[in-house]
Computed example of a mutant assay.
Amino acid sequence: MPTADLPGWRHVFAEDFTEGNVPLGGFPGPVYSSRWSENYADGTPDTAAQQQPKGARTSGYYPSKVLSVHDGVLDMYLHSENGVAMGAAPSPKLDGASQRPYNSLVYGRYSVRFKADALAGFKLAWLLWPDSKQWPQDGEIDFPEGDLSKVIYAAVHGVEAGEHRSDVFRPAQPYGDWHIATTEWRADGIEFFLDGKSLGISTRFIPNKPMHYILQTESCSPTCPLPETNGHVLLDWVAIWART
């Protein structure tokens, strides 16, 4: 896990989940509560469920049934119960923040080492979301993103000619193995790195207002995943830098 400052970047957060185990239903617990939040309570609709009528929702965030810590990793156990697909969206806290947004920055570098089982119908959308909640006007940055049975990609969202537009970078790399994904959000562009290799730089939509980081892990749509689909996303470490 990187812990040093880098040229142009000041290291502000590091987590490698080695300070103790937390059973399913206990995260963040006393050990990690100063550095992590569940972000959404059990039953909060995920992105797919927000498109459904309230009484017909088939997916949501359920951190008490998804998150645990063991063997030096944060384990996200993705599965369904009683017809509801369950994910979670934890957030790191900077400087022990006690209120949302927990890790607000203007420009930042975010790096994660993770491994995701190839689970059709579940996806990652680990993202930077505007504190203003004004979307897409104030932007959105996603990496890694994508259906876990397909490939990893990165995306930047914004407005162009009055319409929602996006830049997407596709390295043709599947999930299923360990990877390091790094996002550099700078004033001159947003650059994505997968396992140390640059995927490219987006200069079309560069947010310049505060954003916060959420490890959003959820279902893809109301019709998937299949009820029997289950597996794990393992997070080995997270490191964050602020722009100097």
Rank of each mutant, 00 (worst) to 15 (best):
A116H: 07
Y107Q: 15
S64C: 12
L94F: 09
S68P: 03
W129H: 12
G87F: 02
G121A: 10
Y107T: 14
H70E: 10
A97T: 09
D131N: 13
M76A: 13
F122N: 08
Q50K: 15
P30C: 01
K54A: 15
Q137G: 10
L127C: 06
M76C: 08
A56I: 01
D75F: 01
L128G: 11
Q52S: 05
A85P: 01
S98Y: 04
V31F: 03
G87H: 05
D42H: 02
A116Y: 04
S68G: 06
W126D: 01
S33Y: 03
N103L: 02
D46E: 08
A49T: 15
D95C: 09
T44K: 15
W135R: 13
G43C: 09
V66F: 03
L94N: 08
G29L: 02
S59K: 07
Y102A: 05
G60K: 00
Y107P: 14
G87V: 06
S37V: 09
H70W: 01
L124N: 13
P45R: 00
V31C: 04
S91I: 04
V73W: 01
S104F: 14
A48L: 02
K133T: 10
P53C: 12
D71Y: 07
A56N: 04
W135C: 14
M86A: 05
G72D: 01
G108A: 15
V69K: 02
V31Q: 05
D131V: 10
